[in-house]
Write a protein that binds this DNA or RNA. Structure first.
Length: 284
DNA sequence: CGGCAGGAGCCCA
DNA sequence: TGGGCTCCTGCC
C-alpha cells in the first residue's frame, strides 16, 4: 500500500502496501510489474515509467472521487479524525500479479523481510532495467517464476512460501488463473476464485481485491487492523478473544466492517492501518 | 552471549 | 483447534 500525502507537496510511501518503492534524492522509484516507475517527490504527477506503460492517473487512482469517498467513510468518528490527521492519503493501484506474489510472501513475517524477499525475486528472475544510470530489476513475470524450481525459490529466501509462489506462478503461466478477468467479477466471485489458490486465505485475498482488482469495499484484517477493531469498535460482535482470528471470525468481522463503511470500506481500512502503524512508531 | 517473542497468515492433522 | 513453517530483528 502506499500512502501518498499531499499530492502536490510532501509525499510518503507506506511500505505496508507497496513493498518495492524507495526514495533516492528528490525522486521515488518503484517497481510496477514489468516497469520501473519514477516520480518527483515534489510533484508526483511528474511521473515516468520504463518501459512507458503506467500513468500517474493509473497508479495514484486519480479517477477516484476523494471528496465523495472521504465523506462516505467519515460517518465514523475515528476515521473522520484520521482523514483530518493524514490529509491526502491515497490508495495506490498495484500490478495484480505483483500484488498477489507480494502478499504470498507476507505471511508470518514483517515488512523488512517482505521487502528483502521481493527484491531477491526481482534480482534473480526479473528483467534488468536502466533508469537514470541506475540498475533496477522489474518484477518477474509468472512465466519466469514458473521456470524456477521450488528449491531455487527457497534459495531466494522465501522459506516455506516458495511452494505457494510456485503454485500461483504455474496457474497464471498456464492460463488457468486470469487475474485481469477478476476485475470485472463481483467481490464474492473474485474472492472465491482467489481462495482456490494454494497459500491464499481471506486476508491475502482481500489485499489483492483491494489493491489490484478494483474491489474498494474489501476490508483486509491483519494484526494491526485486528488491534484497531479491538480497541475502538466495541459494538462489533464476535471480536477476537486471542491473538489470531479464525477464518470464521475473519469473515464475520470483515463483512461487518464492509457493511459499516460501505462501498469504499477499503479506504477506511487504509486510514486505520496507517494510523496504527504510526502510533506504534513504525516507519517501514 | 543465548534465548525467546514477534512479524499485512495459511495449511494440515 | 493447535502446531508448524523460514528467518531475521529487537529485547531481555
Amino acid at each position: 500500500m502506499s500512502v501518498l500525502q499531499h499530492l502536490n507537496a510532501e509525499l510518503s510511501i507506506n511500505s505496508g502496501q507497496e513493498f518495492l518503492w524507495e526514495r533516492v534524492g528528490n525522486n521515488w522509484y518503484g517497481i510496477h510489474g514489468g516497469s520501473v516507475v519514477r516520480f518527483s517527490a515534489a510533484d508526483p504527477l511528474d511521473l515516468e515509467s520504463f518501459p512507458d506503460c503506467v500513468s500517474a492517473e493509473e497508479i495514484f487512482r486519480l479517477d477516484d472521487d476523494m471528496g465523495a469517498i472521504l465523506g462516505e467513510i467519515s460517518h465514523d468518528p475515528l476515521v473522520k479524525s484520521l482523514v483530518a490527521t493524514y490529509p491526502g492519503l491515497r490508495l495506490m493501484r498495484q500490478d495484480a500479479e505483483q500484488c498477489l506474489f507480494s502478499f504470498l510472501c507476507a505471511s508470518n513475517t514483517n515488512i523488512p523481510m517482505i521487502r528483502r524477499m521481493l527484491r531477491s525475486l526481482c534480482a534473480r528472475f526479473g528483467r534488468q532495467v536502466q533508469v537514470d544510470g541506475q540498475k533496477f530489476h522489474a518484477f518477474p513475470s509468472a512465466k519466469a517464476l514458473d521456470r524456477a524450481s521450488e528449491a531455487e525459490l527457497r534459495a531466494a529466501g522465501l522459506g516455506y512460501r516458495a511452494k505457494a509462489i510456485k503454485a500461483a506462478a504455474r496457474e497464471i503461466a498456464r492460463g488457468s488463473l486470469d487475474l485481469e478477468s477478476l476485475k470485472k467479477a463481483s467481490y464474492e466471485d473474485a474472492k472465491a476464485r482467489l481462495l482456490e489458490i494454494y497459500g491464499v486465505g481471506p486476508k491475502i485475498a482481500d489485499c489483492v481485491l483491494l489493491f489490484s482488482l478494483e474491489k474498494l469495499d474489501a476490508f483486509p484484517i491483519d494484526v494491526w487492523i485486528a488491534r484497531a477493531l479491538a480497541n475502538h469498535y466495541d459494538w462489533l460482535s464476535d471480536k477476537k478473544t486471542s491473538d489470531k482470528l479464525t477464518a470464521c471470525q475473519y469473515e464475520n468481522l470483515s463483512s461487518q466492517m464492509r457493511r459499516y463503511f460501505g462501498r469504499h470500506a477499503g479506504y477506511a481500512q487504509q486510514y486505520l492501518y496507517y494510523h496504527m502503524r504510526q502510533a506504534a512508531g513504525k516507519r517501514w
